[in-house]
């Protein structure tokens, strides 16, 4: 797809989403508890492991939404 020459930018409102997986893992009050346990894991452990999925989901979403649709130049 031929695109007219315009100044490139890597700014996007989607990038703000990246703050979510940076801030959430730092909120100890969310996960510093034993109950409820999941498959024997105290909340502290399973919820923090679940934050990995939150991180992956967010970076994937931001990547897809900000991908430049440029043809080979």
């Amino acid at each position: 797809m031929a695109e007219p020459e315009r100044p490139r930018t890597d700014r996007s409102p989607w990038n703000w989403l990246l703050l979510v997986p940076i801030v959430v893992p730092l909120l100890t009050f969310l996960y510093n508890h034993d109950e409820p346990r999941l498959a024997g894991f105290p909340l502290f452990y399973w919820l923090q492991l679940a934050f990995i999925l939150l991180g992956v989901g967010t970076t994937t979403l931001v990547y897809q939404m900000t991908k430049r649709n440029r043809g080979r130049s």
Partner: peptide
Amino acid sequence: GAAGFFAVPYTVIIYPLFFLILIR
């Protein structure tokens, strides 16, 4: 104990934190 588990939030935060920085 739990203090050692900082490795998990640490390695979660890295990627969104550096997502924009590294490509620049």
